[in-house]
């Protein structure tokens, strides 16, 4: 088990390095840097001016060197620019040259500075993650129990009318991406055209003061899309368990139907959905970006869109680091959890 976890963690770190390098490479391509120079300097810069502006700020070093500095395994650059000013990666913004450390990268906790929000990337990511955390928590609280109940109810009597109804519902929800269900929800429950106005069509207010009225629609929007999928997995797993020999034995011994479902079937039926739920996290991340944009809830996903739309390189990098870590660690947890829950799987 220990070697299994170690190997998985090793692969995970390698994957994280590759992914962040790809993001770093793509965000640091020359057209992006040129745009950065023009928005930070001025728009009428000539090509040579752009090049010297970038050169002075260390942007024209070779890509692996820049990546190493950003990561914090190579010492930050110190360049005397063509304009005579001494600039370095680790000093200038908030630190004098004398007390600046030699290394300042993500590993040292220096995530850079966001040009869009005029703040430290680490602070922004922290705040936005907190906001999204609440959203995710609510989504999980709605989605997981809802999906499991739906799946178990559908799977315990395969082919019954209840099963067919619930299966249809779950197919419909998997066919409804967030931007469709969100639009429909807003139009029906929040627009002046239909006139129900039960909920608010924007969740901006929920950032400070979360109420049922302003938070219900975004939570529902994200949960619905994932719910159908988890419910279908649970149903399949439940239906399989219900045909197993030990369920028949229990029934022949005279255990009531409720007892069979609760005591014998449920535990074994929930192994498969656990993996599925963990693997839903990357999906939720997608849903979060769409829903936060649609409902104008200024969380992590909203920050991603802002960073990408405004060429905010360092913020985008910070956000990708966090999302890559989230995705990879949920994969790891799902693998380990599967092994722990299912004694039949032997890990070599």
């Amino acid at each position: 088990m220990a070697t299994f976890i170690l190997r998985r963690t090793g692969t995970m770190i390698l994957t994280a390095l590759c992914l962040t390098f790809i993001v770093f490479f793509l965000t640091n391509l020359y057209p992006n840097l040129e745009k950065l120079a023009k928005t930070q300097g001025n728009f009428r810069m000539s090509d040579e001016e752009v090049a010297s502006w970038l050169g002075n700020r260390g942007f024209l070093q070779p890509m692996p060197v820049k990546y190493g500095q950003w990561l914090g395994i190579l010492p930050g650059y110190v360049i005397r620019g063509t304009d005579g000013v001494l600039r370095g990666k680790c000093f200038g913004r908030h630190m004098a040259r004398e007390d600046a450390p030699r290394f300042c990268g993500v590993l040292q906790g220096d995530w850079g500075y966001s040009l869009r929000f005029k703040d430290e990337v680490r602070a922004i990511v922290g705040v936005r993650l907190g906001l999204t955390g609440w959203l995710m928590l609510m989504v999980m609280a709605v989605m997981v129990p809802g999906a499991l109940v739906m799946g178990v109810l559908a799977g315990m009597r395969e082919g019954s009318r209840l099963d067919r109804t619930l299966s249809t519902v779950s197919i419909v929800t998997t066919a409804t991406p967030e931007y469709v269900s969100g639009v429909i929800f807003i139009a029906v429950f929040a627009s002046s055209a239909v006139g129900l106005k039960w909920f608010k069509g924007t969740a901006t207010a929920a950032m400070n003061d979360m109420t049922f009225q302003n938070f219900a629609l975004p939570v529902l929007t994200i949960s619905l899309y994932g719910m159908g999928y988890i419910a279908r997995m649970t149903r399949a797993s439940m239906a399989e368990v219900m045909t197993a020999q030990y369920i028949r034995t229990a029934r022949l011994k005279g255990v009531g139907f409720a007892g069979i479902v609760m005591k014998h079937a449920l535990r074994n039926a929930l192994i498969a959905p656990f993996t599925v739920i963990m693997l839903q996290f990357p999906w939720l991340l997608n849903g979060v970006v769409i829903t936060e944009t649609l409902f104008n809830y200024k969380g992590f996903g909203w920050a991603l869109v802002e960073a990408a739309g405004n060429n905010d390189i360092e913020l985008l990098l910070g956000i990708s680091v966090v999302s890559v870590i989230v995705v990879l660690s949920t994969q790891l947890i799902s693998d380990i959890g599967y092994v722990l829950l299912n004694p039949r799987i032997r890990v070599s």
């Binding site: 994957t15 793509l26 990357p282 991340l285 997608n286 869109v305 890559v324 995705v327």
Partner: peptide, 10 residues
């Protein structure tokens, strides 16, 4: 492992 939307934006 890439978040799809990030990939699209990139």
């Amino acid at each position: 492992a890439f978040p799809v939307i990030l990939l699209f934006y990139l």
